[in-house]
Design a protein around this nucleic acid. Structure first.
Lengths: 241, 241
DNA sequence: CCCATCTTACTTTCTCGACAGTAAGTTAAA
DNA sequence: TTTAACTTACTGTCGAGAAAGTAAGATGGG
């Protein structure tokens, strides 16, 4: 039991007197001063974990992460309890960082959202490590019992809702009503961002991440706000079945 | 060395006489009749591997695959030599199947390509196993030394080129010249297909795979053939750096 | 200010389960 | 009687987590 997260407030149960009956609440001590080093070390580990999960996936050994911060794998477990707990903290950490520098500290709800997404894509082109971690993990997570599966499930639900809300605001301004299109467009925008990251990670010279994301988002937004008749005559049902 | 793929034509080197010198080509026998069972077993294994790689990723144990065909893991290795060799054969097998039922046996080069892609998306909505295998593996493959990395690198290069060619054909018909846009649109179309598959695999009830793919492809095609001015006033450069 | 004591922040070491690949033996078909 | 198509058994390795020990701060009492 020496491996609980040290700064977890829940864990601090001061031991009541449990020896004899004559003892009067002996040492109700609580030197709960989390050392200032601790927070910094934790963040060091998180950043190393991002790099390693990105480079090797979740299955990469804990010792890879530990070495980067000059520690043994047991030291990392001391901070995070288990490998999957570390993974989930990594994911939350990056999501937090993503909106950290926004003035309102959460995403804009109107057309500004799309500008924010494009800006993020340009930014991502400068930080392959983090992008790779999220890309690898979000796809690994579709496997049946992956520890990050529910994290990503919820994440996409929330993101789609945010994007769809932004679309609805814009549609209202233009007097457009197309609920189905809005939902599909929201999913498409997230999809194109993820998909472009895969291609970019496989060959950064082959895809311009920022510019291509911008193009695709503009295409989808345009199709929502002023739909054109389809140039593909579509018999969409599969013929052979 | 007893574990080479049994039907690999390269491996069939009949042993010349190497015993003594007076012996005259003693038993130049060749019972090299690959049994008809063999090809069927191989395909059984490949299909089981698709299901398992999809459900558990590449890191899933070989014995999972072996059990599905009533074999031990060593039996699987007898056919494919190594786990990564099996992986690569799985990938090639699925790519082959994809165009197998096309009349020309390769993808159309014009607007028909986009119809084919949409049709494939509707079809994929019926076969989660194969989709999941490709989705999981293509993202796992971005890790540094994954055995399937170069497979996917080349695959995207080829697919982007095919889609871009189709765009160029259509642009020529319409008298449009926009080479950069064509390249970005090609990458975007593949991206949106991959990204939608991730979301769909995480929650099939949340995303309509076929319909949404169709919407996104139409949006991108429309933007190429008749681009509109951007509704997003864009200062794309990242401000804080 | 200093000492006794508790806690944090690790390390070393061990266990135990997976799992890929190998080697040798077995059966049956050609 | 040779070879393909396996099986059983074994090996080596790797990796997560538990256990226990240790060193260095804090903390409070005097």
């Amino acid at each position: 039991m020496g491996s609980a997260a040290p700064d977890d407030p829940e864990v601090r149960a001061p031991p009541d007197n449990e020896k004899g009956s004559t003892m009067a609440t002996p040492p109700a001590r609580r030197p709960l001063q989390p050392r200032p080093e601790t927070a910094r070390r934790r963040e060091e580990i998180l950043r190393a974990a991002i790099a390693t999960f990105g480079a090797k996936g979740y299955k990469g050994p804990l010792s890879d992460i530990a070495e980067q911060v000059g520690m043994t794998h047991a030291g990392v477990l001391h901070y995070f309890g288990s490998k999957s707990a570390l993974l989930l903290e990594v994911l939350k950490f990056r999501d937090f960082e993503d909106v950290e520098d926004l003035p309102t500290h959460h995403m804009p709800g109107d057309a500004g959202l799309f500008r924010h997404l494009v800006k993020t894509a340009f930014l991502n082109a400068r930080r392959a490590g983090i992008v790779q971690a999220f890309t690898v993990l979000s796809s690994e997570a579709v496997t049946d019992d992956h520890p990050a599966r529910s994290f990503f499930e919820e994440r996409y639900v929330n993101l789609r809702a945010e994007v769809a809300d932004a679309f609805r605001v814009m549609c209202a301004e233009e007097g457009i009503d197309a609920p189905e299109t809005v939902d599909r467009a929201a999913a498409s925008i997230l999809a194109v961002m993820d998909g472009l990251q895969i291609q970019w990670l496989l060959d950064p010279t082959a895809v311009e991440l920022g510019e291509t994301t911008e193009f695709a988002i503009e295409a989808i937004v345009a199709q929502v706000l002023s739909p054109r008749d389809t140039p593909l005559s579509s018999p969409p049902r599969s013929p052979t079945d």
